[in-house]
Design a protein around this nucleic acid. Structure first.
Lengths: 249, 249
DNA sequence: AAGTGGTCTAGACCACATC
DNA sequence: ATGTGGTCTAGACCACTTG
């Protein structure tokens, strides 16, 4: 069996190291879906042969992609494509209940298509008025309403979530695994913006708090591996339950 | 001239890689003050010879310390000991003024020695009742009071800050450089905890806001290179000026 | 020109996971 | 026993900074 070396020639501009070019080439193969999330990629030596570089150089490229969160290297087992963020750890910003080991629950209050307003379109990188799916979602701990979320998703992509065969009651408590299973969308990274404000009358009603009660607001942009924004989310919760810890280095 | 190899023998327990042991040994030499912050350490080849390892192994150790924030490597110039955090970017949590290019100002409202209360002692890793220096500090932008801070520093160490020859009016707008110059203390990393509350009457007075006004609270522990806590700080500011952005990967 | 860190190679051997 | 990633070596050459 003859061995084909389709990736041997890597565009290697001066000013860029070979391992960086290799990493870019491998990343392209990942993003293209050649190796699905969670699956193993070929062994180091095999990849080094394919690209015609020394083992050490290929290792350098793989380590780079590992640092960037695209690969997961496991001693003795192999190198795997990172499956993406599973639980969106929104609750790390809040502390509800005491020793609450009960997992947060999720219920979808509304699901509808909309024309994207300016802010939503800007966040998602769409033109204003393009179709989006809007979700309103309440998250509870031990039956107690805690967080209220507005979520916007670009629509051709998230069409499967509109299917009446899958009522929102069956969606489960985590959205990101659902995005992966039903829409083939994997969240690779996210950016959260935090501020404080007062609850609107309707939000206060849903959270069973007085209108105007102080709240913490978290606005999230979530991105897939190719870098496009695939979710815009706005979350509010009781400001007194807010807490967060940051390390500065 | 005979060459002495005092660091050749590095305790190298099984289960630990040689470069990790080398990194620990080098870090010890840094923490001990053998190479002061900001100064250059010997060249890679020289260190490799000193420790009797291959160049690549020493490079691995140096890269590790660089990732951990102890060293700063500069192509063509050398490897330097990180000088420590200079500006403690407390204002990255808040947005005061508009295009405010005016740098934040600092004024010390109080400076006194105290016996550490339980919370302060715990944060600083002291026994309760041990002596600490307490500072009260107001930070302003364009003459407008913005943040009120309570700062506690362990006392044998920060004695120089009590000197009446250096009135607090001359301290300047940044504390961490002062800690370095006058006390030989360099802040290597810090941990900030954020929560929400209401202004006490006295804090409200200092910030020219109504008592009970919503505020953001930031509690900071700052550590030096050896890992001991050398500052406990409590900061409050108008909650409506608070904003913060986090990346999740 | 000399000295520094950055890249790349080719090969040996080790540690871990799996069959 | 086999295959995987992790460590270490020894050496060549490149790129950047400084005198």
């Amino acid at each position: 069996m003859s061995t084909i070396l389709p990736f041997q020639a890597v565009t290697h501009e001066p000013g860029q190291s070979r391992y960086a070019a290799l990493a870019a080439a491998l990343k392209a193969r990942i993003v293209r879906g050649e190796w699905p999330p969670g699956s193993a990629i070929p062994a180091e030596q095999s990849l080094a042969d394919q690209h015609g570089v020394a083992l050490g150089t290929m290792r350098r490229a793989l380590e780079l992609l590992s640092e960037q969160g695209f690969l997961d290297r496991q001693h003795g087992r192999g190198t795997f494509v990172k499956p993406g963020l599973s639980g969106a750890p929104m609750f790390r910003f809040f502390r509800f209940g005491e020793g609450g080991d009960t997992p947060p629950q999720s219920s979808i209050l509304a699901r509808q298509t909309q024309a994207a307003k300016a802010e939503v379109a800007a966040a998602l990188g769409l033109g204003p008025g393009e179709p989006v799916l809007h979700l309103k979602r309440l998250r509870s701990v031990a039956g107690q309403a805690c967080l209220l979320e507005d979520i916007w998703l670009p629509l051709p992509l998230f069409e499967p979530l509109l299917s009446p065969e899958h009522p929102t009651a069956d969606w489960g408590d985590l959205l990101y695994p659902l995005f992966g299973q039903r829409c083939g969308v994997h969240v690779h990274r996210a950016v959260d913006s935090i501020s404080f404000g007062q609850l609107s009358a309707s939000a206060a009603r849903a959270l069973k708090l007085p209108a105007g009660h102080p709240c913490a607001r978290v606005s999230r942009q979530a991105f897939d591996m190719s870098g496009r924004c695939i979710e815009w989310r706005h979350t509010v919760g009781d400001a007194h339950a807010f807490h967060y810890t940051v390390s500065i280095v």
